[in-house]
Deep mutational scan, measured.
Amino acid sequence: HNLTITQGKLFFHYNPKLCLSEIHKMEEVSGTKGRQERNDIALKTNGDQASCENELLKFSYIRTSFDKILLRWEPYWPPDFRDLLGFMLFYKEAPYQNVTEFDGQDACGSNSWTVVDIDPPLRSNDPKSQNHPGWLMRGLKPWTQYAIFVKTLVTFSDERRTYGAKSDIIYVQTDATNPSVPLDPISVSNSSSQIILKWKPPSDPNGNITHYLVFWERQAEDSELFELDYCLKGLKLPSRTWSPPFESEDSQKHNQSEYEDSAGECCSCPKTDSQILKELEESSFRKTFEDYLHNVVFVPRKTSSGTGAEDPRPSRKRRSLGDVGNVTVAVPTVAAFPNTSSTSVPTSPEEHRPFEKVVNKESLVISGLRHFTGYRIELQACNQDTPEERCSVAAYVSARTMPEAKADDIVGPVTHEIFENNVVHLMWQEPKEPNGLIVLYEVSYRRYGDEELHLCVSRKHFALERGCRLRGLSPGNYSVRIRATSLAGNGSWTEPTYFYVTDYLDVPSNIA
């Protein structure tokens, strides 16, 4: 807008934040220059609390790290170098490059900038070799853009010569660093050979998330399962459950009422301010606690030095998902009996873990797994792929695949051998790939016309006998059925096997 004052003059007093240069501009645009008398524009009460600059400061050096910015700028000295009290560095987070010096300023003089007072450097006698002032900004957020400017702080001049310097606002972004852990990993099994893994992005990506790394490792069953005799009275049979499938998407929606109208769909109840505040506090606490764990609990591995020492970490090797089922080394339970199943799973520490690289999504279907087997899954978020990966501390989750139908069934015939004193040795093959492992066998036998009897055969007993022995049988026709019990439950009964026990007292003698 054009402003013209045809008559009258300007009068400025007691404006401590208004620089004289701005008042002189007002004289020019209003056409009143030359009308004012000496005392109409006070030299001592206008701009006496402001830094009124008329020179431009330029930054000469900028260096960044993930949490620091090192700045240096060209030296500046007023005509009387004693008038320079120091520099004021202003900075704040700036997602967009549209910041002005006066953003967030209120009537009390406060604003949204963080201000650092910096002492002037030592003055050199040689004007050509003056030290460049600077400042190291610490405690910054990774991968965050900051708006920065600097200006001088000078003393009051009796001659009211307006001098000083100020830089333009520059924008500097800190470097990326390792992201925080992925949030809320959930693993479920939808079949006997697959596990579905879902997660949420890290709360602090500290860069642009480029991919996720998912490692999985087959877990050995508890050692007590191999040692305890679950045929003993009072000892509860062990059981394991597989990871249940995901709930429906509708039930997972946030901010939804727990109660549904019987007449149909209901609208979600909005969260109160107290609920939102509580969630923010919980989120802040979780982030602080995660940072504490990362800094205190997890110790970084030592990389190899120039002395030739090897990095103890196993090298990563990509495998196809079809090879995942046989990740671990199978060892027989008892070496003397080769027909026992290889369900003991000690994992070799030198073995390469299978892994998958996930790009542009937060889910993965891990296939080719062994049925009813526990897996430990390790999830890392990465925001750099080359020249070397920059990934987060791992988040861990466990899951067990679903049982395989008929995996616990005894394959092959049940054979028998009759000894003296009416002892019958029953023999059968253990299931080759049971659900988890076989903890015991149930032997059901009966003599024709009598009630059915049951015998429990422990895992250890089966390994020693290759089956079991029935003792003290009365003469007669017998039928026997056997079924295995694994961590997933009972298998199917075998087809009945028949044998006849004679009275050993009636056996004919070869003595003449």
Rank of each mutant, 00 (worst) to 15 (best):
R376K: 08
S268T: 14
K361I: 09
E495P: 06
F289T: 03
D222Y: 06
V334Y: 13
D450W: 11
P403T: 04
R301T: 07
N255M: 03
L505N: 11
V214K: 04
G264I: 07
D323M: 14
V214S: 04
T340W: 14
T494V: 11
H211Q: 07
L379E: 00
E249P: 05
T272F: 05
P387K: 14
G207Q: 01
P270K: 08
L228K: 09
R218W: 14
T502H: 06
A336H: 03
A309N: 11
D261L: 11
R286F: 05
V297S: 01
E362V: 15
H294R: 01
S262M: 12
K460P: 13
F285M: 06
F246A: 11
P475Q: 09
S251W: 05
T343Q: 09
L225S: 04
V423I: 10
V345F: 10
G472F: 07
T401K: 01
Y441A: 01
T288R: 05
Y500L: 10
S342L: 15
E388Q: 12
A484V: 06
D409K: 12
G308S: 13
D503K: 05
I438Q: 05
P496R: 14
H416R: 06
V214R: 01
R446H: 09
S444L: 06
E362N: 09
E388K: 08
P496S: 10
E217H: 15
R447S: 12
A335I: 08
I482P: 01
W428F: 04
P403Y: 08
A309L: 13
V423M: 07
E258M: 05
T386H: 08
S398Q: 09
V457H: 00
Q275F: 06
F246S: 10
S284V: 06
S243N: 14
S492I: 10
G412F: 07
L379W: 02
P300C: 06
L455W: 08
E495W: 10
Y396R: 08
Q219L: 14
T494G: 00
D250H: 08
A395T: 06
E420L: 09
V324A: 12
P475G: 08
E310Y: 14
P431Y: 09
I418F: 12
I209N: 12
K287V: 05
C231Q: 04
S342D: 05
A407R: 09
D229Q: 05
G264E: 09
V439S: 06
T210Q: 07
V501E: 01
L237C: 15
E417A: 12
S262L: 10
L321H: 10
N339H: 12
F499C: 03
R286K: 07
R390W: 12
P349K: 09
N295M: 05
S363M: 07
P413K: 12
P314S: 06
E281H: 14
E433R: 13
Y445F: 05
R400Y: 04
V296Q: 11
Y504D: 10
N383T: 05
G264P: 07
F298W: 01
K233A: 15
G306H: 00
V214A: 05
N435V: 05
K287C: 02
R218V: 06
A405F: 14
D229T: 05
I438T: 09
Y500D: 06
K357R: 09
L487E: 03
R481C: 06
Y500A: 10
K233I: 01
K361W: 10
E249T: 12
E265W: 10
N383S: 04
H416G: 05
V423D: 13
T347Q: 12
A220Q: 15
F372H: 08
D323K: 03
P332D: 09
Q384S: 08
E417C: 05
R376V: 06
P332K: 10
K271Y: 05
C231T: 03
E430H: 12
P238Y: 06
R400C: 10
S315H: 10
R319H: 09
I418Y: 13
A395S: 10
E217G: 06
S284Y: 00
S243M: 08
F226G: 05
D450K: 09
V324E: 08
R316H: 12
G308D: 08
R471C: 11
T288K: 08
P244H: 15
E279Q: 04
N326V: 02
Y478K: 01
T272D: 02
R376I: 07
C391Q: 00
H461I: 12
R301C: 03
A484N: 02
H211A: 09
T288L: 06
R240L: 14
D408Y: 03
S304M: 15
C456Y: 05
W242S: 09
C269E: 10
E247R: 08
P475R: 09
T241Q: 13
V480Y: 13
E378H: 12
D503P: 13
T272S: 12
K406L: 08
L232R: 15
T288E: 10
E224P: 14
K233N: 15
C269W: 03
E282V: 06
T303D: 07
G368F: 07
F372L: 12
R316S: 07
R313L: 09
I377R: 00
Q384R: 08
G476L: 01
R400N: 12
F419C: 11
K361A: 10
L277N: 11
T333L: 12
G489S: 05
S320R: 12
Q384F: 12
F246N: 14
V327C: 15
V214C: 10
G374N: 11
D450S: 11
R301A: 01
S479M: 06
L321D: 11
Q380A: 08
L487Y: 08
H211C: 00
P314Q: 15
V414Q: 04
N383F: 02
